[in-house]
Simulated assay, not measured.
Amino acid sequence: MRRARSKKGKIRRDPELKEFIRQRPDRRWSPEQIPQAPRTAFPDEPERHLAHETLYQAVHLPHRGGLERTPGVPRTGRPARRRRRRPYERATRFIDPGTLIGHRPEALNDRRVAGSREGDPIVGKGNRSAIGTLVDRSTRYVELLHPPGGRGAEQVRDALVHALGDLPAEPARSV
């Protein structure tokens, strides 16, 4: 009752339209196809014409539309609509983003010192295989790593740590 436009939905107000719509999901029609049927069945009654969004709201918000959810409706099988979020509301992809490439030391960007390496995982088709790569930024020497025991993030990480374990803590300085 506190809504700005407090009224029953179009489908809930018209029992004949509601029954007309209830018959359509049994025919496996999509929510985009169902609103076209009242336009042909009731061409002279525009108050019975619907938009597909009205039908979606009637199914997903039963207090507004009055259509109960039946198994297999909608055809996609999704249990509910997912709310779209604005870009500033979206969750970040990384819990700890770390140091951005633009913030790394200037000495790494000129690539004069050998020993600075970048590691990346490469995942195969269908996520069925994975390898790790280590690339020296100055010499472009590439080392491929096979993660033993699986292809998950932890196994690739462990293979990268093992490969980097035999390196000195400080890269050699070129003269």
Rank of each mutant, 00 (worst) to 15 (best):
E47F: 10
R27C: 09
T76R: 14
T40R: 14
H60P: 00
G77K: 12
L55Y: 13
R24A: 14
H63L: 07
L17S: 06
L17G: 02
L17W: 05
W29Y: 15
E53T: 14
P25W: 15
R24G: 00
V73C: 10
Q33Y: 06
H49Q: 12
P71L: 15
H60R: 12
P74N: 01
T76K: 08
T70A: 12
A58M: 11
T76P: 00
R39G: 00
E47I: 06
I34F: 01
Q57K: 14
L17A: 04
P74S: 09
Q57N: 14
R39C: 02
E19I: 07
P71A: 15
K18W: 02
Q23G: 09
E53P: 00
V73S: 11
R39E: 08
R27K: 15
L50H: 08
F20V: 01
T54V: 12
A41E: 15
A41V: 05
G72R: 12
P25Q: 09
T76N: 15
E68T: 08
D26Q: 11
P25T: 09
V73A: 11
E32P: 00
R22Y: 06
A51R: 12
L50E: 02
R28D: 02
A37S: 05
T40N: 03
R48T: 11
L17Q: 03
R22C: 12
T70E: 11
T76M: 03
P46V: 03
R64I: 09
P43I: 02
I34N: 02
P62S: 10
E16L: 11
D44K: 13
H63W: 08
H60A: 10
H60I: 00
A58T: 07
T40A: 06
H63E: 15
G77A: 06
G65D: 04
R75W: 03
T54D: 11
H49A: 03
P35I: 02
P62I: 08
R64M: 04
R27G: 01
P43W: 03
D44W: 05
D26Y: 13
P71F: 09
Q36L: 14
L67T: 07
L55N: 09
G77H: 08
H52Q: 10
L61H: 13
P25S: 02
P62F: 12
V73K: 07
G66I: 00
E45S: 07
G65W: 05
H52R: 13
L50K: 07
P71N: 12
A41Q: 13
E45I: 09
G66H: 08
E32K: 07
T76Q: 04
L50M: 06
T70I: 13
P38S: 04
G66S: 03
P43Y: 05
F42T: 00
L61T: 09
R24W: 08
R27T: 03
S30D: 07
H49M: 06
W29C: 07
R22K: 15
K18F: 02
G77S: 08
R27N: 12
D26L: 15
W29R: 03
L50T: 05
E53F: 03
G77E: 07
P38W: 01
G65N: 06
E16Q: 12
G65Y: 06
L67M: 14
